[in-house]
Amino acid sequence: MPKAYIIARVTVTDPERYANYVKGATEAIRKYGGRALARGGRMTSLEGEARPRNVVLEFDSLEQAERYYNSPEYQAAKSEREGAAIAEIVAVEGAE
C-alpha cells in the first residue's frame, strides 16, 4: 500500500494564534501516526505562486491521512488557524 502525504502551503497572518494551531496540530499528527518531512524551513519558489510556509506530512495511507485531518483533535487545532493564516491543503497518495 502506498504512503500518503498531506501538503500544506501557508501564509501566516497572525503568528501568535498560528503557534496555538501548530501545537494542537503537532499532537494530532503524532496521535494519527504522521511524520513531518518538511515543516517551514528555507524554500525557493521555482514556479507559480509561492507561500512562505510549506509543510509535508507522511502517513501510512490516504485513509490514515484523512482520519488525521477529520479527527476531533485536528479540527480543534484548525479552529485556531482560521483567521491566523491562509492555507491550501491537499492529501495525495504516493507512488508505488
Score class of each variant (00 low, 15 high):
R17N: 15
A91R: 09
P2G: 03
I86K: 13
R30M: 09
L62H: 09
A95S: 15
V12C: 04
V55W: 00
V90N: 10
R9N: 12
V10F: 01
P52V: 05
L57C: 06
E16N: 12
I89A: 02
I89R: 03
G83E: 11
I29H: 04
E88Y: 12
N70C: 06
A4H: 02
E66L: 14
A36D: 02
P15Q: 13
I6C: 01
I89D: 04
E47C: 03
R17G: 14
Y74N: 12
A36N: 07
F59K: 00
R51E: 09
S71M: 08
S45N: 15
R39A: 09
F59L: 06
I89G: 02
G41V: 08
V92S: 09
G94R: 13
R17Y: 11
E49P: 01
E16C: 07
Y69D: 06
A4I: 02
E58F: 04
D60E: 15
G24K: 06
A65F: 04
Q64M: 09
I89V: 15
G33L: 05
V92K: 04
P2V: 05
I89Q: 03
L62W: 00
R9P: 00
Y68Q: 03
I86R: 15
A36S: 12
I7P: 01
D60T: 12
A77Y: 01
R30C: 03
N54S: 11
Y74C: 01
V22K: 06
R51I: 00
G34K: 02
P72W: 06
A65Q: 00
G41Q: 10
T13E: 09
P2S: 14
E49Q: 15
R51Y: 10
S71G: 08
E58K: 04
G83K: 08
V55Q: 00
R51K: 14
V90R: 09
A65E: 04
R81I: 03
A85Q: 10
I6T: 01
T11I: 07
V10G: 00
Y5I: 05
K3I: 00
R53I: 06
Q64S: 13
D60H: 06
S71Y: 05
A50T: 11
A91T: 12
E49M: 09
A50V: 07
G41E: 11
R53A: 02
M43Q: 15
A36T: 08
N20Q: 15
G34R: 01
A87H: 07
A65G: 13
V56F: 01
R30K: 12
E27N: 11
G83S: 10
V12W: 02
A87M: 14
Q64E: 12
Y32F: 14
Y32N: 03
G83T: 11
G33S: 07
L57F: 07
M43G: 13
S61V: 04
A4N: 03
V55L: 08
N20M: 10
P2L: 02
E47P: 02
E93H: 08
M43L: 14
G48K: 06
G48S: 11
E63M: 06
E58S: 07
L46Q: 15
M43P: 00
G48T: 06
E96Y: 11
F59M: 03
E63A: 13
E27I: 11
E47K: 06
E58N: 08
A95K: 15
F59P: 03
A36Q: 08
E88D: 14
Y74Q: 09
I86T: 15
A85M: 09
S71C: 10
A8R: 00
E47W: 08
Q64D: 12
G48E: 08
V92D: 02
A91Q: 14
N54R: 08
